[in-house]
């Protein structure tokens, strides 16, 4: 199965129903976009998981780095006032 490593990697996004957004399902190898779409059909929708597929070259994705986790995500952890539940609704407000 060595040629598998020659083929580029693609990320697969599946939309399970109309009205929902595409969700990342996994990745696969394929020689080009058309074949990636077909492989995605065979690998990720064979149990009726989807009605629409996107494939994206993995190299086109810029991901956040685990090293940046502290500066990226931790500061949000102690800011409960960003959640709507932080606020008490005054008694007088009726239509909220």
């Amino acid at each position: 199965m060595s040629s598998s490593t020659d083929w580029p990697l693609w990320e697969v996004f599946v939309r399970s129903r109309r009205g929902l957004s595409h969700t990342h399902a996994g990745s696969l190898h394929a020689p080009d976009a058309e074949m990636a779409l077909r492989n995605a059909r065979d690998l990720y929708t064979r149990r009726s998981e989807g009605v629409s597929l996107w494939v994206v070259p993995s190299t086109a994705i810029t991901a956040s780095s685990p090293d940046e986790k502290d500066s990226f995500f931790e500061p949000a952890g102690d800011k409960p006032y960003r959640h709507p539940t932080f606020y008490e609704i005054p008694d007088g407000v009726k239509h909220l």
Binding site: W7, H29, D42
Partner: peptide
């Protein structure tokens, strides 16, 4: 099969 993806395709 030459690659895993194609093996699944043929099996389908």
């Amino acid at each position: 099969a030459p690659v895993l993806e194609e093996e699944v395709a043929l099996a389908n």
